Computed example of a mutant assay.
Amino acid sequence: MQVDADFRPILGPQLVRLDPMRIKQLQDPLVYSSIDSLAKLSAHCLNLRAPLTTCEKLINSDNTLYLAWKFDEEQNVSRLLGFAKVGRKQLFLYDSQMQTYEGEILCLLDFYVHFSAQRQGVGKQLIDYLLAQEHAEPYQLALDNPSVTLLGFMSQKFGMSKPVWQNTNFVVFDELFQSFAAENGEKAPDGWNRPQTPRRIGAVSTDTRWLRNAVSGHQSKGNAMAAPVDADMTPQGALSNRAHQAKARKAHILSSKPLW
């Protein structure tokens, strides 16, 4: 995307990392509007009503923008080539064996290369620079609702050919779980155990494994002391539980008192 200005004194190198503080320090309306315009093109390609990325949102978040650009000395213009927005999110994940994981994952939230710069290695340079700055490997990226094009890009450029879709529309790669099993085996890292690590999913019980930077979460509102809870998973038990919940809701409505 062409901009009639010289961004070299403002942005510096052709691959630049813009965290919220750096974006706020730019203090250049033309740079802000140019990035926002590039993000609108990304939203248009994904048929979104509004862009996922704006400078205002970035300043008020913990996300980081990686921008590829260059200065055309012949025409004396700056060209924005593409960007990638990442952030760390606490995710609950399933692997292909339906085992559950919990951890803070580096997420690729928005990724776009301008049509004039596609198939020129810009996307690969962006992701390589991103991974180097974040000290991460390609399989450690979680993709937020990726397009078929992005999945093909990750497969072709990084060999990530086994995506595992999650209920939240995030996609992680099977190599993430394989690397964790190879490093830690079947045991959770020291200090990351918590009561009731096996959690019940539906009518079966699955094991909970852990990723790096895992944090504990509440088990249930009726289990504040982390004591084991035996659930009756039979059809009769489910019907009884529903009846009990209905009575509790009715009593709450009639008494106008909180249940907990």
Rank of each mutant, 00 (worst) to 15 (best):
V171E: 04
A227L: 15
Q166K: 09
V148L: 10
G159E: 15
K157L: 09
K187V: 03
G152N: 11
P235F: 06
P198V: 01
L130A: 05
P198S: 05
A188E: 00
D230T: 12
G202K: 09
S220Q: 04
H244Y: 13
N169V: 01
R212K: 13
G185D: 03
T208L: 01
S240D: 13
A231R: 11
Q125K: 15
S147H: 07
D144Q: 15
N145R: 13
Q125G: 14
P198Q: 04
R200S: 07
M233D: 08
Q118Y: 00
P146Q: 05
Q178E: 10
M160I: 02
A248H: 06
Y129E: 11
A132W: 10
M160G: 03
L239F: 12
V113M: 04
F170W: 08
P189V: 01
V215H: 09
F153V: 05
P235S: 07
S216D: 08
V164K: 01
D174K: 05
D144K: 14
P195S: 05
A132S: 06
M233T: 14
R212E: 11
Q156K: 15
Q219L: 10
G222D: 15
R242Y: 13
A182S: 09
V215L: 14
L150V: 15
E186N: 02
Q125N: 14
M225K: 12
M160V: 03
H135K: 15
V148F: 03
A132D: 08
S147V: 01
N169Q: 12
A248I: 10
G237E: 06
N213C: 06
V164D: 03
G152R: 11
F177E: 04
N193H: 05
A224D: 08
A214T: 10
R212A: 13
F170L: 09
E183H: 04
A117L: 07
L151K: 13
A238F: 15
L239A: 14
A188Y: 01
Q140Y: 11
M160P: 02
E134W: 08
N241R: 14
W165C: 04
M154S: 07
V148G: 06
R199Y: 00
V215G: 09
S179R: 10
N241V: 10
S161P: 00
A203H: 14
A246D: 14
A226D: 13
I127L: 11
P195I: 00
L211M: 10
M154G: 02
V172K: 12
G159K: 00
Q133F: 02
L150P: 06
L239P: 10
Q118V: 06
A132L: 04
K162V: 03
V171S: 05
P163W: 04
S116C: 11
A182H: 10
A188G: 01
E175N: 13
S216W: 04
Y139F: 15
S205C: 06
Q120S: 10
M160F: 08
G123D: 03
Q125S: 14
H244T: 12
L141S: 08
A142L: 06
R200G: 03
K162H: 09
L150W: 00
K124N: 13
S161T: 12
V229W: 14
D128N: 06
Y139A: 07
